[in-house]
């Protein structure tokens, strides 16, 4: 083959590509070639691994610290008089505190149906979810009506003088 010159615009097939396309009936790869192929594949895979591993690690969000495990003061009995309720934050978790005939109770405020935040309805005196009208018993957290499949998980409360204190479950 004549060496291509600066003036020529024809694409020049690379020598080994040309050799390969005409070598359909070439003998099976000798071991050395297979080894080289393996080496190339291995290098490519380890390079990809080396780049992707830190990226995946970086993408996974670090655990957010909750309230630090300590007690959370939800308010005083004056803030939440009998037959009312209030949603407070315990760390990043919303909690509903209700003052019922059965005493002060607290539950996770995340509806067990599809995750809306429940509130206290003072007319019917139920914990009510605004999204699909789920009703919960304020004394027990049990479902009274509507689509929620499970009761609201309770949160331990303690009264210290007239302060209402939430005690996160250990851990």
């Amino acid at each position: 083959m004549e060496p291509p010159t600066i003036g020529s615009m024809e694409p020049q097939p690379a020598p080994d590509a040309a050799a390969r396309s005409s070598g359909r009936e070439a003998p099976p790869s000798p071991p050395r070639r297979r080894f080289l192929r393996f080496l190339v594949g291995f290098s490519a895979a380890s390079t990809l691994g080396m780049i992707i591993a830190p990226i995946v690690g970086f993408l996974i969000p670090p655990r957010t610290q909750g309230s630090g495990g300590g007690r959370v003061v939800a308010g005083t009995l004056e803030d939440i008089p009998a037959n009312t309720g209030k949603v407070v934050a315990m760390g990043s978790a919303p909690v509903i505190v209700v003052n019922t005939e059965a005493g002060v109770k607290a539950y996770s405020a995340v509806c067990t149906h599809l995750g809306c935040i429940v509130g206290f309805d003072t007319t019917v005196r139920h914990i009510v979810c605004p999204c699909h009208d789920g009703h919960f018993n304020p004394a027990s957290g049990a479902v009274l009506s509507g689509p929620p499949p499970a009761p609201l998980p309770p949160i331990a409360v303690a009264l210290e003088d007239d302060e209402i204190v939430l005690v996160p479950s250990g851990g």
Binding site: P3, I6, S8, Q12, A14, P15, D16
Partner: peptide, 26 residues
């Protein structure tokens, strides 16, 4: 004034060398 300088293939030769340079930089 035609200048007859031979060419060298861009693919795969130049590309391969370029790839090796990228590895070194990485």
């Amino acid at each position: 004034q035609p200048v007859d300088e031979p060419l060298k293939p861009f693919f795969p030769h130049y590309i391969l060398d370029e790839l090796i340079a990228w590895f070194v930089v990485l």
